[in-house]
Design a protein around this nucleic acid. Structure first.
Length: 558
RNA sequence: UGGGGUGUCGCCAAGUUGGUAAGGCACCGGAUUUUGAUUCCGGCAUUCGCAGGUUCGAGUCCUGCCACCCCAGCCA
């Protein structure tokens, strides 16, 4: 059951099926423990949301629990700011980890002891080859690597060297601890992989307590083991690492052995889901930050005005499989619109064009009662002011309509003002470029609901705002960040920076009906006929509402 | 070229002892509508990467191809 009330059951995904089988066979004594293990080196994006929903969702469905674990083994790239941002985003998405917050760095001491154990067992050795030498002796995809000359150091020598590495007696790169597996393995990950490297760097959590840091492959499986994880869910690119994951746990003969299961990561059209690329967009100033509303980050979507329910529903709809594909943006957009459908309606003009009602008295003023939602009566009504001069949407007027299907204003044409009268365009005042500057219209005073001409049929209905009462507002119209559907993998020589959409953000000065100015910051509302907007907390000021366009209305107009 | 994966409608995705192709998105109708919105009805894979084979019967089993993705960080 999702938050918007739709009970859209779907068949179990392959991971849930595996868990059902494991539970049936008693493999993990019926318990289910998962973890979401981000590296705090950037903000979470919607691809992470998929993993978060999977890990927390599976734990919840099977009555287990899920850890939020910071995979902080590389002090050079990780910061406390990212840790905080990640926690905020996971929580905002609607998931709670309670006491189960962890950091790989919590286990550094235990990890170190396991490493000595590996050395004792003759399964790890200190290698003193340089970085380049290690690379050169690793072999290639088709050729086996050659064993390190240090591979047969005695247990005693290895132990002493490793302890001295920890003690800080060596410089970065002098030595590494390597697993002793098989330099001829067709799986490159098994060619004596590095387990520990010297890194004289300040760690955001452990400070200067350590100068050697464990590598991902070594850390991850043991962290999973230490936390009692049963099903370690990760993306497909780690499939080749599973033999190493298993090797470490098998070699150490841990009493519990989590099962790694891989699924395909999310790809979304017209955006990019790679922390590296997103980081570049931020660092090079192509966007205003990780939380720029155009970013596919959780923070960006939040700031755009998207609700977490929409993101969760999206993750639910796309499913979990092992086949890689690219989801169309329309799938996400559909979820966002569905979620926003119940929001109140209002009249607002994004790009104003002045209209003067020539036969409406200058000093007259009326207030029309309008429902806040056409279908949801519970949302009540409000009063909308009306007077001789109005703003209408520039797009709702055209000198020469292309065809008879056109339903808006044009010279001589009639149209109904939403919740108000029918008007006819009698005259167009033009500017230097021949553009419309003002429309002079006549109004049919009998055409309002209840009036003698209320039933008169006109081609269309347009929205409007009283010029006298309207409140000026900043409109931030967001659109896709890239012009190509797959900016991360362009066929020709272009790079993602070459296909940024110059119109991904368009600023407009508009007008909104008075009641919108009284809304609480953070409110979401549909501007009728235009789209859903978010009164952005970060930018709005008391007398200065700033609205983000979350998404346009669906437009079926051929 | 070695290893590991994946291929079911434009996109996502069910299909698990072989029995005669769910659903969602998109799209196309049509109804309702003072939002070209919403809602509502209806349509949308004789076919499952390709080619053979087994079988009364195959998306599901076998064989052989093809395409695409991942791997040679002291990143995760």
């Amino acid at each position: 059951m999702t938050d918007n009330g739709t009970d859209n059951a779907r068949p179990d995904n392959f991971i849930e099926q595996i868990i059902h089988k494991d539970n049936a066979s008693g493999k993990f004594a019926g318990g289910v423990v998962t973890r979401f293990p981000p590296e705090p080196n950037g903000y979470l994006h919607i691809g992470h949301a998929k993993s978060i929903c999977l890990n927390f969702g599976v734990a919840e469905r099977f009555g287990g629990h899920c850890f939020l674990r910071m995979d902080d083994t590389n002090p050079l790239k990780e910061t406390a700011e990212y840790v905080a941002a990640i926690q905020r985003d996971v929580r905002w998405l609607g998931f709670e980890w309670g006491e189960r917050e962890s950091h790989a760095s919590d286990y550094f001491e235990q990890l170190y002891e396991f490493a000595e154990e590996l050395i004792h067992r003759g399964c790890a050795f200190v290698c003193s080859l340089s970085l380049d030498e290690i690379r050169a002796t690793r072999g290639t995809l088709t050729e086996a690597g050659t064993p390190s000359p240090y591979r047969d150091r005695s247990v005693e020598d290895n132990l002493e060297l490793f302890r001295r590495m920890r003690a800080g007696e060596f410089a970065d790169g002098d030595h590494v601890l390597r697993a002793k597996i098989d330099m001829a393995s067709p799986n490159i990950n098994m060619r004596d992989p590095v387990l520990y490297r010297v890194r004289r760097a300040h760690h955001q959590r452990t400070g200067n307590a350590w100068c050697i840091y464990p590598m991902y492959d070594y850390t991850h499986c043991l962290s999973d083991y230490l936390e009692g994880v049963t099903h370690s869910l990760c993306t497909l690119e780690f499939e080749d690492h599973r033999p190493l994951y298993d090797w470490v746990l098998d070699t150490l003969a841990t009493p519990h052995h989590p099962q790694q299961i891989e699924f395909s990561r999310l790809n979304l059209e017209y955006t990019v889901l790679s922390k590296r690329v997103l980081n570049t967009l931020v660092a090079d100033g192509h966007v205003e930050g990780w939380d720029d509303p155009r970013m596919p980050t959780v923070a960006g979507l939040r700031r755009r005005g998207v609700r977490p329910q929409a993101i969760r529903e999206f993750c639910h709809r796309i499913g979990i499989t092992r086949s890689d594909g690219t989801v169309e943006m329309s799938a996400l957009e559909r979820c966002i619109r569905d979620d926003l459908e119940a929001m109140p309606r209002a009249l607002a003009v994004v790009e104003p064009l002045k209209v003067v009602l020539t036969n409406y008295p200058e000093d007259r003023e009326e207030w029309f009662t309008a429902p806040n939602h056409p279908q949801v009566e519970m949302l009540g009504t409000r009063e909308i002011p009306f007077c001789r001069e109005l703003w209408i949407e520039r797009d709702d007027f055209m000198f020469d309509p292309p065809n008879k299907k056109y339903k808006r204003l044009s010279p001589g044409a009639e149209v109904r003002l939403r919740y108000g009268y029918i008007i006819r365009c009698d005259e167009v005042v033009t500017g230097n470029e021949g553009e419309a500057v003002e429309l002079r219209c006549s109004v049919d005073l009998e055409s309002r609901a209840g009036g003698a001409n209320a039933e008169r049929k006109v081609k269309g209905v347009i929205h409007w705002v009283s010029l006298r009462h309207g409140v000026a507002a900043e409109m931030r119209l967001y659109d896709r960040l890239f012009t190509e559907s797959n900016p991360g993998r362009l066929k020709d020589g272009r790079r993602f920076t070459d296909v940024l959409n110059p119109d991904s953000l368009v600023l407009r000065e508009g007008f909104v009906e008075p009641y919108l100015a009284g809304l609480d910051v953070g409110a979401r509302v549909q501007f009728e006929r235009t789209g859903w907007f978010y009164l952005e907390p970060e930018r709005s000021r008391p007398q200065r509402p700033v609205f983000n366009r979350i998404i346009t209305l669906r437009d079926n107009w051929a």
